[in-house]
Simulated assay, not measured.
Amino acid sequence: MAQNQQPISQTNPQEHPVQIPLNIERDYTTLINQIGNTNRKQNHWPTIILSIIFVIVGQTIAKLLENFYYDQINRSEYNENRQNDGVWTQALLQTVGFPLLLLPFIILTKKHNHHQQQQQPPVTYHYKSLAIIYICIGIIMSVQGRLAAMGKLDIPFGVFTLIYTTQLIFTAIFARFINKIKFNKWIIISLIFAIVTGALTMNTSFGGEPDEAEENYPSGSWAALFAGICFALLLCNIQNVLDNYIFKRTVSTVRKPSFASVFEVLIFSSLVATIISVVGLLIAGEQDDLKREMNEFSKGKGSYVMAMVGQAVSWQIYWVGIVGLVFSVSSVLSNVISVITWPIVSVLVVIFFNFMDDEFDVLKGIALITAVVSAVAYFFRASPTLSPLEFLIRLG
Rank of each mutant, 00 (worst) to 15 (best):
V262Y: 03
F263A: 07
E264M: 06
V265R: 05
V265T: 11
I267F: 10
F268T: 01
S269L: 06
S270H: 11
V272R: 06
I275F: 13
I275R: 10
I275L: 15
I276H: 01
I276F: 03
S277T: 12
V278M: 15
V279M: 07
G280K: 04
G280I: 00
G280E: 11
A284R: 08
G285Q: 06
D288R: 10
D288N: 15
L290W: 00
K291G: 15
R292C: 02
E293Q: 13
E293C: 00
E293D: 07
M294K: 08
M294Y: 04
M294G: 14
N295V: 02
E296K: 01
F297G: 06
F297S: 02
F297E: 03
G300R: 09
G300V: 10
G300I: 08
K301E: 08
G302E: 09
G302R: 07
Y304Q: 09
Y304L: 04
V305Y: 15
M306G: 03
A307L: 02
G310S: 10
G310R: 03
Q311R: 15
Q316I: 09
Q316A: 10
Q316K: 14
Q316C: 11
Y318K: 09
Y318S: 06
W319D: 01
W319Y: 15
V320T: 10
V320I: 13
G321C: 12
I322R: 07
I322P: 00
V323Y: 09
V323C: 14
G324W: 11
L325K: 00
V326N: 08
F327S: 06
F327T: 05
F327G: 03
S328Q: 13
S328P: 13
S328Y: 02
V329F: 11
S330R: 01
S330N: 13
S331H: 00
S331Q: 04
S331G: 01
V332K: 12
V332Q: 04
V332I: 09
V332D: 01
L333W: 01
S334Q: 00
